[in-house]
Design a protein around this nucleic acid. Structure first.
Lengths: 226, 226
DNA sequence: GATTTCCCACCTAGGTGGAAAGGT
DNA sequence: ACCTTTCCACCTAGGTGGGAAATC
């Protein structure tokens, strides 16, 4: 399955991914949810070069930060927002400096423990989520399989696709039976990346420095263009 | 009315202030709420010297920060927590440096616009409020009557008593009619202070420096004693 | 003279990539 | 070789009191 094809629909507000079972059985409170990726052009710039995200033992933020604008929720209903990261494929990669490109280096390592990151404002009402940009800036990536800080565990030199799950809080007694109706998943192909312990592509490093205020150096281009 | 006498009951978990109408008509979800002031001995040290809090045009944090531990809420009910500041008296004060004491300098100025500060986690369930210390560290004090940042407006050289209000979120249609039953107010006399634009009592300055990590200088005494 | 405003050096707190060292 | 770890100088971001200057 080509992950690249999956998310355009969601980004534009069309039905959820096929893996969710389609929209037809969805609860009305999630069926209409629309999610728009913020900093879209910055993500695209990175994606064109091949985004790399640093993973450290202590945990490292993502840059760009995964931020979305949400609409179409029921303002009065409660939702939980969470993220996870799925392997794009079962491959291990390595970077060929001479050709400045990523090569397949073999089969993927055994998958890291699958964790999810709840947005710290969860649960909150639709009105709350929709009134301003939702930012996952507290999320951190680690390569420590024994991590005890609740960070997202990834394998270095593997490729990942971030996903956002919007889950309706269902107070009914037998809500378990309807669980599959109560959530919707969104993924944006321009946010995929390869996890690394040190940057491989120098152009990625330079774009990080140029666009992340915390990195050394000064902006040389107009941030409005991103 | 002597404000000093009012709050001991609340601090120890006894009934709310008389001004609230007593506990007898209170909803069960608020009747049992208990609030304990954190950093109690630090507050006492300041109070013994005569606490001063800086007010600035841009807004200044309180130090010590108003922090409480809460118990006795209904874990499943939703509550809003908010603070306000009431004038202790209708007086204006000035500091006599030669005698190192505060003197009454006349009648109080016209009261500043009465604002409230909602704890940013509001609304949240009782379980959430009770599971860890609730800190009002985002609250800022200003002397700008035209403040547009939602800060608490106070008159400099006037004396104030911080108050905490615990409000049950009542979803019933005619909840207005029962509003007086749905909240409880707590005030701690050791948290009163005089608002100033510059510190008057040098011993207050020294204690701020010694106990606030953001102030210059190093701790010389053991923080455990506070 | 008393009080307020403004700017600043100095902190805390924590997010960066780089370089050197370590590991396999 | 290739990858990871550790430490660190250098940032952002913002909370302090001090002192000069302004205000009243």
């Amino acid at each position: 399955m080509d992950v690249t094809k999956l998310s355009q629909g969601c980004m534009l507000g069309l039905p959820c991914l096929p893996e969710d079972g389609g929209m037809y059985g969805k609860a009305p409170q999630v069926a209409g949810v629309r999610v728009q990726l913020e900093m879209h052009s910055l993500w695209q710039q990175f994606d064109q070069l091949g985004t790399e995200m640093i993973v450290t033992k202590a945990g490292r933020r993502m840059f760009p930060t995964f931020q979305v604008r949400i609409s179409g929720m029921d303002p009065a209903s409660e939702y939980v927002l969470l993220m996870d990261f799925i392997p794009v494929d079962d491959k291990r990669y390595r970077y060929a400096f001479h050709s400045s490109s990523w090569l397949v280096a073999g089969r993927g390592d055994t998958a890291a423990p699958g964790r999810v990151h709840f947005h710290p404002d969860s649960p909150a009402r639709g009105a709350q989520w929709m009134k301003q940009t939702v930012s996952f800036d507290r999320l951190k990536l680690t390569n420590n399989l024994l991590d005890d800080n609740g960070h997202m565990i990834l394998n270095s030199m593997h490729r990942y696709q971030p996903r956002l799950h919007v889950v309706l809080v269902d107070q009914r007694r037998d809500s378990q039976r309807y669980a599959h109706r109560n959530f919707c998943t969104f993924s944006f192909p321009e946010t995929r990346f390869i996890a690394v312990t040190a940057y491989q592509n120098h152009r990625i490093t330079q774009l990080k420095i140029a666009s992340n205020p915390f990195a050394k150096g000064f902006r040389t281009t107009n941030p409005d263009e991103w």
